[in-house]
Design a protein around this nucleic acid. Structure first.
Lengths: 173, 173
DNA sequence: AGCATCATGTAATGAGTTACATGATTTT
DNA sequence: AAAATCATGTAACTCATTACATGATGCT
């Protein structure tokens, strides 16, 4: 079973969800399209890790609500006890900065400004989410709190770096 | 042409390299195995972006040393002027932390300790590289300096987070 | 003697994205 | 009238990893 499959089980450890819900919830941690998720859910069910119930909705399309079986829960906690694979990041910006001698310096500055903007948007989003959890007493679990904090740390450090890099390029270092 | 192809051109903008060299150099920025790189190099040559020279080595196996053509250089600077795709990160640890209710709390602590160790190793490596560049006047370019600094920022923030998370879990928050 | 490094490739499989396909409801 | 959201699926394609294949040199 691959990591995305375990990721889906992870989401389902909180509550039963539809494939559509799962797709949206898993995005921040493990990007995946619905075309990848639906077949995996079918497979997980064939293998006995999850089961589903058809929920008829009058206003919206019917949906399949998936939930963990005992076997699924077992598989999850077994997976948790294994070491995690090292993280993989692929960022086109790194490659572009690597060969920045080759092009117009203005291009690189624009790329960094775009990254600054990107990080600011992410930070706004995660701050908003954090406050939702803090004030309105949403279904925040210890895990989600840790992950929120980490996202804030990581986008802040990327932002700091990008702003520092822009200063360097403008000769203000 | 895909991002990895441009990545290879980026590396070659510094100097001619063998496929084997390219594989090692591109790892930190865009992980790729040799089985992916060799076919792409052949394709880049077919399309006129690079050319190669066979270098016979008495002690080691012969190698193909690839270099940019004018067309390749053109393609590179055109690519540099386009906005970069948003970065993609996939980290199994995030998924495991997400569902940490499900398993033994000791498992999660162990995972975080392993991540702390991982970040420390990376930091040591990047600090060593930085000093090499600073003191021995290696072939450091402005791009590499920016990327080094960024790696230091990013692993430090991940380290800080992981240590904070461990304190939280041990109830020292 | 066995393993690591250097060096290049192909084949098979797995993972991930884009496109194809459908259809109701709600918002702009 | 057009676009977005909810909802599920399949097909085609690209991207990435693992395995297969070979072979010299140098280190332990």
């Amino acid at each position: 079973m691959n990591t995305l499959s375990y990721g889906l089980l992870s989401m389902l450890s909180y509550a039963p969800f539809s494939g559509y819900d799962l797709m949206q919830k898993i995005q921040p941690f493990w990007p995946a399209k619905h075309s990848q998720i639906y077949p995996l859910l079918a497979q997980l069910e064939r293998d006995g890790y999850i089961q589903h119930e058809l929920v008829v909705q009058p206003d919206k399309p019917d949906k399949k609500v998936h939930s963990l079986t005992d076997l699924g829960r077992e598989a999850l906690s077994q997976w948790l006890s294994q070491p995690a694979c090292p993280p993989v990041t692929r960022d086109e910006l790194s490659l572009k900065i690597f060969c920045m001698n080759e092009g117009d310096p203005v291009d690189i500055q624009r790329l960094l400004e775009q990254r600054v903007e990107y990080c600011r948007e992410k930070l706004v989003w995660f701050h908003a989410k954090s406050e939702l959890f803090a004030h309105k007493r949403m279904d925040s679990s210890p895990g989600i709190v840790l992950l929120m904090r980490r996202a804030l740390f990581s986008f802040q450090s990327e932002l700091d770096w990008a702003e520092w890099a822009l200063k360097e390029l403008r000769g203000e270092g």
